[in-house]
């Protein structure tokens, strides 16, 4: 077995990003525009303080769902997928490159998202100078990470993540085995379904309601391994997606 080459992985990551940078920008742009519209609606209904702070966790999760879906959709786009897969690099290196982009971009979204939330909150709270605003945002972002993200992880985010991957893995296998128009119908149905994060959100919500999350906290590393395994399974499945 060949050793992993970080030079190749880095090059593959660069290739992936540059080959579809505009799509990535559209995805991010759409995400934020959509959020602004929705937040405006919710603000009108419930008042700004409630929604922006309380709802932010869900929207981060929602954003990561959208991103995962979009990135995976890029992989399932036949030509782009196939050409990328013919580049040098072992399947494992391509997977590492792909998943690294996923984590990096998700992290960037989360950071920006937190930044936006805190910025909005600060604006609502008080009139402050630009310097204080920047400092305040920075501090608040880290505070929020500690308060919200860790807490979030303790409850259901790993289940959601694992479930997300599992759905993609199953979808990859199903799509691979189908052919013709049915293949497209199933694929777009899955994409649509996952795009709105209904499956993950509802499952996560259910687990939270049933208070199952806290019981499984010690097994979190196992879920990370499961995530990676299912991601690999998904990737292998998608690699073999063929219009027969």
């Amino acid at each position: 077995m060949n050793k992993l080459s970080f030079r190749r992985i880095k090059a593959l990551m660069k290739y992936e990003i540059t080959s579809d940078a505009r799509s990535l920008l559209y995805i991010l742009g759409s995400l934020f525009v959509f959020e602004i519209i929705i937040s405006a609606v919710f603000d009108g209904l419930h008042g700004p303080d409630n929604w922006i702070v309380e709802g932010s966790d869900n929207w981060i999760m929602f954003g990561s769902f959208m991103l995962t879906t979009s990135l995976t959709a890029r992989y399932l786009r036949p030509t782009q997928t196939r050409v990328y897969l013919t580049l040098p690099g072992s399947p494992l290196e391509k997977f590492v490159a792909h998943i690294s982009i996923y984590f990096l971009v998700t992290a960037a979204i989360v950071l920006v998202r937190f930044g936006l939330v805190e910025l909005s909150t600060l604006f609502y709270e008080t009139e402050i100078s630009a310097k204080d605003l920047l400092l305040g945002v920075s501090l608040k972002v880290f505070d929020r990470f500690e308060d919200v993200w860790v807490d979030h992880a303790k409850t259901f985010s790993y289940y959601t993540h694992a479930f997300n991957f599992m759905i993609f893995a199953i979808m990859g296998i199903v799509v691979r085995r189908l052919r013709g128009p049915l293949q497209k119908v199933v694929y777009y149905f899955c994409m649509f379904f996952l795009f709105f994060g209904i499956v993950g959100s509802e499952t996560a919500g259910l687990l939270d309601v049933l208070n199952l999350g806290k019981e499984f906290v010690p097994f979190m590393p196992l879920f990370i391994v499961l995530d990676i395994f299912l991601g690999w399974l998904l990737y292998r499945s998608i690699c073999k997606v063929q219009a027969k």
Binding site: T79, V83, L85, T86, P88, G89, S90, P91
Partner: peptide, 14 residues
């Protein structure tokens, strides 16, 4: 198999 050794020697220009 998309073997790396082979892929390094094959270029598809579409």
């Amino acid at each position: 198999k998309r073997n790396n050794d082979l892929m390094e020697q094959v270029r598809l220009d579409v």
